[in-house]
């Protein structure tokens, strides 16, 4: 049955491999080039501690020059999802066009057919996500060294969460497909569910997975280094960290260590004297793996539950 299962998803696996190859074809030359620029200009020394003024220029131009890689990997998060959709397709197609009746009436149990096919899909989907993680982690190393891995373009392609999303998409696709038994509509709906789920996690849920750190400091004093953290909120506050109302323009957002000044208060908080405080709510960079673990548990858990549900439904309900 393993040969049969493999033969059925061979084309899909090759397409997924081709997507990875195209990505690698772009990322590897750029990554090599970036790494050489990085070491040549001695930028490693600029990372970490509050950026010395001497570094600011070269760092800025370096970030700008290789921002394309950020964009590339932001979009590449879709590769494991598309691969998982493709790899779900052979299972769905058998249910859709009735060939399951052929397989289930050979001399094997339907349980064996279901387990083999779904296992092959899961393994291939995880492998594609794993390849993306390896590629992103290697190619983005200098950027990650400077910016940390808490921003979405690094966080979504490194660590372990890409595997979780691959399993999630696969689970949604096979579950919908087992119920609906229409290949293309099921895959389209699964993709829509993925996009919505992903946006929800990136923009809302991830910040709340772990209770964040809250730090308050004197506005004209020196605060914590928020460079590589995931900043959830930052605002002018009183001593106890309560937001001070009346400062139009909203909170002052920090990104990559640069204070964006929407209001004069953000730009010159010391103008208000010594009683104004800044408060930041954030996930420190040290929580990367902890956050990834929690997110993986939730997303991959849902994905695997859906795969099992599809297996159960197919085994019990489909005739």
């Amino acid at each position: 049955m393993i040969w049969v299962g493999w033969r059925q998803q061979r084309v899909e696996t090759l397409i997924a491999a081709a997507m990875l190859a195209v990505l690698a074809g772009v990322a590897i030359p750029v990554g090599v080039h970036m790494a050489s620029v990085y070491s040549h200009e001695g930028l490693a020394a600029c990372a970490g501690s509050a950026n010395p003024a001497a570094c600011a220029n070269s760092l800025g131009s370096f970030q700008l020059r290789f921002n394309g890689l950020n964009v590339l990997f932001t979009w590449s998060t879709i590769v494991p999802a598309l691969a998982a959709l493709l790899l779900a397709a052979p299972f769905l197609a058998d249910l859709d066009n009735g060939t399951y009746r052929l397989y289930w009436t050979q001399s094997i149990t339907r349980r064996r057919w279901i387990v083999t096919k779904l296992t092959l899909s899961v393994v291939a989907s995880v492998a594609v996500a794993g390849c993306l993680i390896a590629l992103a982690t290697w190619a983005r190393a200098p950027l990650d060294h400077l910016n940390g891995r808490m921003s979405t373009n690094a966080y979504d392609t490194e660590g372990i969460v890409p595997v979780a999303y691959a399993l999630f998409v696969l689970g949604v696709a096979v579950a919908i497909g087992a119920l609906w038994r229409r290949t293309v509509p099921a895959l389209l709906v699964a993709f829509a569910v993925y996009v919505v789920g992903r946006a929800f996690m990136d923009s809302w849920l991830r910040q709340r997975l772990l209770s964040p750190v809250k730090t308050t400091w004197l506005a004209n004093g020196s605060g914590p280094n928020l460079n590589q953290t995931l900043v959830i909120n930052q605002f002018i506050s009183d001593k106890h960290g309560h937001e001070l109302a009346g400062f139009a323009g909203g909170p002052c957002i920090r990104s990559s260590g640069v204070l964006f000044s929407h209001t004069s208060i953000c730009a010159q908080p010391h103008a208000l004297g010594t009683h104004v405080y800044m408060t930041a709510v954030y996930q420190p960079a040290s929580r990367f793996w902890e956050l990834q673990g929690v997110e993986f548990g939730i997303v991959a858990g849902i994905g695997m539950l859906l795969v099992l549900a599809a297996a159960w439904w197919t085994h019990r309900r489909i005739a």
């Binding site: 033969r7 059925q8 084309v11 066009n97 009735g98 060939t99 009746r101 052929l102 009436t105």
Partner: peptide, 10 residues
């Protein structure tokens, strides 16, 4: 089975 389903890509 009816309509003799076969894996068309094989």
């Amino acid at each position: 089975a009816q309509d003799h389903p076969l894996p068309r890509r094989f």
